[in-house]
Design a protein around this nucleic acid. Structure first.
Lengths: 341, 341
DNA sequence: GTGAAAGCGCTAACAT
DNA sequence: ATGTTAGCGCTTTCAC
């Protein structure tokens, strides 16, 4: 090894000194500036490599008042839907050398607020929030901030800024319509009672709205517990449902995971799906494609939300202070499978 | 709204000026310094709030030469195993106000190298790498860096620094042992031929090693394609296998996703699992728990890798230049389910 | 308990 | 094509 034993931080001035040029010239060499001698530039890059120089973005960021950071909060990266969004957002932004600052809110608005405060101190150039439900203080912080704010995964009525989302409500209504169209009348909804899952609440609202529109009983609302709800809650929910409303002929679940749990419990109790009970999920998770019977569900195009958000941000960073807030509506798709007739 | 119409950036000096104190006092007020008048401090915090002040971490970072960043590369956050690691790592670090810098390598060492360069410019206080296979230049960059480097998800023979991982090889060997113990002899391995999935290659090596140890034929190695391989490749792989080695009585797959694909194809071809063919997966994905029959698999404790890495980093950042590189070995668990006898 | 001076490493702006 | 000066906003250091 020919590495120097003690490592002092090498800076541009050191490279310059070793070559008899100024720090400014070194700076220009790195950004591939037009106005610089090709030979000098080559020498600088070679020397930088030799000295093990690493460009200091913290200094550059301070001086330029630009960081290349994009902050994003999600309830949980472990959820396959949100991680698809994060992945496609990251993928596109990191190609442009923008760096994601990721934070998990754990479905908690207070934690979201705490994290937003931390994130804003890092001077990101844009902020992406999953969902539209925020604390007072979070809203205040974000309305005063001078950078693009994008709310995703919902269509808020009072958006903070830009929106890339879909209607959890309307898409769930469409699912009810399908159930009714195929002759089901005694429908129930499982999930979405708690405030920490605004998307679940919206889906439940869509259920109620559609039922009332059809003149049907919209009161079969089974709570599944606090987010994140999964397969266990789905199984327990099915028991609750059949105890209370044994004649239910269609069950709409707040997610594919919950629906899968309900499905498994149906098998145990000898309830035939879809003959005795039609079951649907939400989110088009892998599990819904492979279970038996496979689940009718809603594909919200989680990845697309990420890539369109990335595109929006890239546009906004190019354009200097563009005008109105943009609203990009994603159209979820109804996926029909054998769990419904 | 009583917000000022034009927003200039407010700094500590502005708050100080408004109150007749120096920027230094404001700085002390924010860090809850002991040596400061409680009344002064309260006034400063109130004024900061009133002016919409946001602390500038970029300036602080430069001055203090500490950023609170921890960089991590993963092949893909979309993979449920890696996202569990990222989640638990993030969860623990963000409690200490450390900020994750996440980068997706897309299973490509060249992209990894490019991303590492970008990440190091941000002056993270630690770097976490998923896997142990890196380009020459990546290795060089990371051996010269003066911060903790942690390789996770593997047990490299020539580690760059610290390690939090498990043996993909040994755990797969154990699975072979189980198959042999239950009477299977004509075993095949599906997956892991390509260099961009070093974990898959290790698992295949574990298969070969165990087979040879048992004096059995270790040549039934079915390629599944380039990472990431999934259910589709699993189904195709099963066809390849049965065309070439129709008498195979046990199939070990590189992941639960691949195993699930193989399982589905078995159903289509009328191959009974586990009677005609025992099938195992790897990674303990949710899908392996819910498919029929449920999959025998290896639980690598992906979340635990994240939390133990977080603990290690927190320790290292506390201790000033601790001694030797640490090696934390996680013990994967063999999960027996009905896809094997 | 508070302030003044200096500087972290880079780069905009203006020279030459 | 290259150099000089100044300053981004904070915090270390020393002074009082």
């Amino acid at each position: 090894m020919k590495t120097p034993s003690v490592k002092r931080k090498v800076k541009m001035a050191d490279i310059g000194a070793a070559l008899g040029v100024s720090a400014m010239t070194v700076s220009r060499a790195f950004k591939g500036d037009a106005g610089i001698n090709a030979r000098t530039r080559a020498a600088i890059l070679a020397k930088a490599d030799e000295l093990g120089y690493v460009f200091d973005a913290t200094a550059s960021n301070l001086r330029k008042s630009r960081t290349g950071f994009v902050a994003i909060t999600v309830p949980s990266v472990e959820n396959a839907n949100f991680s698809a969004t994060v992945r496609d957002l990251t993928k596109r932004l990191q190609k442009k050398n923008l760096q994601i600052l990721l934070a998990n809110t754990e479905y908690d608005p207070a934690e979201e607020e705490r994290l937003i405060v931390q994130l804003l101190r890092r001077k990101p150039e844009a902020v992406v929030l999953t969902g539209a439900q925020h604390s007072q203080r979070t809203r205040a912080l974000l309305t005063n901030v001078q950078i693009p704010v994008v709310e995703i995964w919902d269509l808020p009525e009072q958006p903070l800024g830009h929106v890339v989302g879909f209607s959890n409500r309307t898409s769930m209504s469409g699912l009810v319509d399908h159930m009714v169209r195929t002759g089901r009348r005694r429908l129930a909804f499982l999930g979405g009672e708690t405030a920490n899952d605004p998307r679940g609440v919206q889906r439940r609202a869509g259920f109620v709205e559609a039922m009332e529109r059809h003149g049907l009983d919209a009161t079969r609302l089974i709570p599944a517990g606090s987010a994140p709800v999964g397969m266990t809650e789905g199984a327990a929910g099915l028991d609750l449902l059949l105890d209370q409303y044994p004649d239910t002929d269609g069950l709409l679940c707040v997610s594919d995971l919950v629906a899968f749990g309900a499905l498994a419990q149906c098998k145990r109790r000898g309830v035939r799906v879809p003959e005795d009970l039609a079951v649907s999920g939400y989110g088009n998770y892998e599990i819904g494609r492979v279970c038996e019977p496979p689940l009718t569900t809603i594909d919200v195009h989680a990845g697309q939300i990420g890539s369109r958000t990335a595109d929006l941000i890239l546009d906004l960073l190019d354009a200097p202070a563009e005008g109105a807030a943009q609203r990009h509506v994603i159209q979820p798709d109804l996926i029909l499978r054998r769990s419904t007739p």
